[in-house]
Design a protein around this nucleic acid. Structure first.
Lengths: 112, 112
DNA sequence: TTTTATGCATAATTTTCTTATGTATATAAA
DNA sequence: TTTATATACATAAGAAAATTATGCATAAAA
């Protein structure tokens, strides 16, 4: 994604979140949406994206439909029922993680 | 650190932040402080911690002093002058990263 | 006396990216 | 009209950054 890859390990929950919010999406669309939302901060590389999507499909987290847009193929991904459950857990973990980061980066002084 | 390692890639800035806030610290102390601050969420493994500290020392980001505490050794780490500059940048990147995560996990609706 | 905590360290392996490469169509710019 | 950019997929090689396992050693608690 970026030079300073803080994002290592966060890609899967990010994709799950996108699918949860937007329903059906195709790969390239995900990269563009993330780029836009993060104002160019986060650029998902194809080498990270596609293998991960394939893994999630293998695991039954997402399912796909391939459609033609003019002459170009689009492979749409959406969460399965199991994938939706999985996503709930992933989002909880994500929140806990972000909270923890917040605690570290912005430590609260102990009030006596 | 944890099973679901979202933290992959964040360890270095976390350590820099600790040293910035607390001055001189030894490795084990860092693991305990992070565990405490994050309420047990983040458990830094030794296999991740020590090689990283050694790398930072090699790079001149931190410097060390070894002291004996009773019969047990403690190796104290602190930021060098260059390390302090480096940390300012790292914290900026960290903030941008956290902001981006926030945007994704908690997307703001577009107000027309 | 055996487990847990403190304190360091490293090797092997796995996970998760980046970078590079490949194929192909559509559009914009030169 | 040719070239660059954008769209859209995919995979392989390599690097980065963890986990897991192991080792050594002292101190305290069970």
């Amino acid at each position: 994604m970026k030079k300073s890859s803080l994002y290592k390990g966060c890609l899967e929950p990010i994709l799950l979140r996108l699918l949860k919010d937007n329903g059906r999406m195709y790969g390239y669309q995900m990269t563009q949406m993330v780029k836009e939302i993060t104002k160019g901060e986060l650029n998902i590389t194809e080498g990270a994206l596609y293998p991960l999507l394939h893994k999630l499909e293998e695991q039954g987290v997402v399912e796909t439909e391939t459609e033609m847009n003019g002459n170009r193929m689009r492979k749409y991904y959406s969460l399965t029922k199991a994938g939706k459950k999985h996503t709930v857990n992933a989002m909880d973990e994500m929140k806990a993680f972000m909270q923890s980061l917040e605690f570290i980066v912005n430590p609260k002084p102990i009030v006596g």
